[in-house]
Structures are given as C-alpha cells and as structure tokens.
Simulated assay, not measured.
Amino acid sequence: MIKNISLGSGWMIIAALLFASMNILVKNAAAHLHMNEYELAFWRSLLPALVIFGTTLVRKQTLKTPFFWGHMQRSMAGTTALLLAFFGLSHLPLATSVTLNYTSVVFIALLSIFWLKEKPPLKTWVALLMGLAGICLMLKPAFATDRLIETLITLSGGIFTAFALLQVRELSLMGEPAWRIVFYFSAVATITSAIAATWFGWRGLTSDSLPYIIGIGMTGLFAQLAMTHAYHVGQKFTVAALSYLTVVFSAVYGVIFVGEHIGALEIFGIVAVILAGVVSSVPEKNAAKR
C-alpha cells in the first residue's frame, strides 16, 4: 500500500511539473512569438490525437463507440475549457490563470447541487465555500486593474472544465476506456482549434516557433500519460491532492521565468482554491472502508 502511494505520488509530481512546463511554454509563445490561443491549442491537441490513433492501430483496438454523442459533449466542453485556459495564459499572470482553471472543483460542487440534484456531504460544502472565497480574493485585484474581462473569461473555463469532468465520469461509468475518451477530446480540440486558427490567422512554422510547438505538444502528452498512470497505480486522494502542485509550480515558474509579482490577495486566493481541491478529494468514510 505504501509503495503504491509513493509510486502514484511520484508520477503525479512529474505530471504537475510537466503541466507547469507546458503552461510557461504557452505563455512565452503567446508573449514573444504572438501566437494566438487557437494555434497553440491545435499543437497541444494534435500530438496526443496522433499518438493514440497510432497506438490503437498497432494494438488492433477500435475507436468505434456506442456513446458517440456523449464523447462529443465531453469533447466540446473540454475544447472550450482548453481554449479559455490558453486565453488566460496569454492575457493573465501565470499563477492567476492556472488557478482560475482549477476552480472547476467549485463548479462541480455547484452543478452537483443544482443540476444533478445531489445532496452533497459536509466536505463538499466546505470545499465550495473555500473555493468561492478564493475566487473572490482573486477577483478583487482584477476590479482594480484593466484585466477584469480577461479574468472573468478565464474563470468561465472552470465551468466548462466541470462539465467536461462530469461527462468523463459518466463515460467511465458506462465502460469507456480512458484512452478513447482522451482521443475524441484531442481530435475534436485539434479540428476546432484548427478552424479557429485559420479564421484568426496562423503565425506559421519558423525556427523560433518550432521548439515551442514541439515542447507544448510533448509536455502536454507526457503530462497526460504521467497523470493517468498516477491515478492507475496510486491512491486516488493522494494523487488528486498532489495534482494542485501544478498551481504551485506554475506560480514559481511565473516568478522565476517571467518576473511576475504575486500580491497578498492573489496568494490567499490561490491557497484557498488549492485547499478547496484537497478537501474535495478527501474520500468519504464509507468509501474509505471499502
């Protein structure tokens, strides 16, 4: 048991580092090369789609599914969330944009209460209140700046992420394998972002952009694989809690590589959102006994 926890924790820490590395690459590509979020999302999604498609052919598996429209709903919600996350990385400080993307735990709680009509346990209410407090703390500095619209747009990505995660849960309960869910999401994100990038304009492949493109695709792919493996071999609560290291690593990267300053209110907001995610990951007593 201890070995599994350590192994899962190690893989999740690697995943968090890779996700944070992808975030800083996206931010720098947008800032220095003026690449828009649509083409960045395209390169982020293309490699996983190709790798999973090739692996499927080699293993002689099938991409056919009886839950096609369920995949489409999940994929469109996930694609929208990805584009909004990349928008935030392009327009907001790194720690702020990543934290706003991780507010999905708050919206999952709200959707569970008002949409799914579930009666949440006490820990969900605690996580919800902590998450909402964190959002309020992070929004306050935005009201004093000219970035309120960008902040609200990025925050809306948390809503779409929540929808996507609820759809993933439904598809998983119906027996859909994780690789097929990831493939449909990657394929839809690739096609959608390609259309949007064509409309808004491509920067094109250059010697300057190629390292960023390869880096974003590779870090995104290996981060996804490391995270999936962490949940497979590790303890779910520990892995889910450690996933919030992405926020911490991104904040550190922002300070070191971009020279960003994080104010006291943003720090308290980030901590509140992280704690909300950790609390929401705590298993129920009955579930822990099983």
Rank of each mutant, 00 (worst) to 15 (best):
N286D: 15
A272L: 08
M174G: 00
F257L: 15
T79S: 15
L242V: 09
F237A: 15
L57T: 02
M138R: 01
N4R: 14
E266N: 10
A20I: 08
M227N: 10
L148S: 15
A133N: 05
T151A: 11
A109E: 06
L171C: 05
G54V: 04
S172Y: 01
Y212C: 03
G259D: 11
Y253H: 07
E260D: 09
I24F: 00
T154M: 09
L25R: 12
E176S: 10
K64T: 12
H229W: 07
A264I: 15
E176M: 07
W115M: 07
A230C: 12
L210I: 07
P93Q: 10
P48H: 12
L210D: 01
M130C: 07
F87Q: 06
M12W: 07
K140T: 05
V239Y: 00
T190C: 06
T198C: 10
L7V: 09
V239D: 01
G234P: 11
F200T: 04
I5P: 03
F237C: 14
F222D: 01
N36I: 09
W115P: 03
A16E: 10
N286F: 10
S250W: 02
L166N: 08
M174E: 02
T56F: 13
I181R: 07
I195P: 00
A85L: 15
G10W: 05
W179E: 06
F86E: 14
I191Y: 01
W43Q: 05
I213D: 05
F107G: 01
G8I: 10
L221F: 13
E118R: 11
M1L: 14
K64N: 12
A187E: 02
T206N: 11
M218P: 01
E150N: 15
S207N: 05
G78T: 06
A240H: 04
L50Q: 02
L137E: 02
A196N: 05
L40K: 13
W179Q: 06
Y244L: 10
H261L: 10
R74T: 07
L137T: 01
V258W: 00
I216C: 05
P93H: 08
L122H: 03
S250V: 09
I113C: 01
T124L: 09
A29D: 04
G263D: 13
M218S: 00
P141W: 08
A30I: 04
A142I: 09
K27E: 08
G259L: 14
L110D: 02
R74I: 05
T56N: 13
I267C: 11
N101D: 04
A223T: 09
G259K: 13
A251E: 02
M138Q: 01
I5N: 09
M22T: 14
S21W: 00
W199H: 08
P48M: 13
G263V: 05
K27M: 09
V271T: 14
P120I: 03
L111P: 06
Y231M: 14
P93D: 08
L83C: 05
I14F: 15
P120S: 09
N23R: 03
Q235K: 10
L210F: 08
F185Y: 12
S6L: 15
G175V: 04
G54W: 13
V58G: 03
A223S: 12
G277N: 10
F268K: 05
L165K: 15
L242Q: 04
H32M: 13
A196R: 00
E118P: 05
S281F: 02
P283G: 11
V271H: 00
I195D: 01
T238G: 15
F249I: 11
V51W: 14
W199V: 12
S209Q: 07
P177G: 11
V248C: 06
A194W: 07
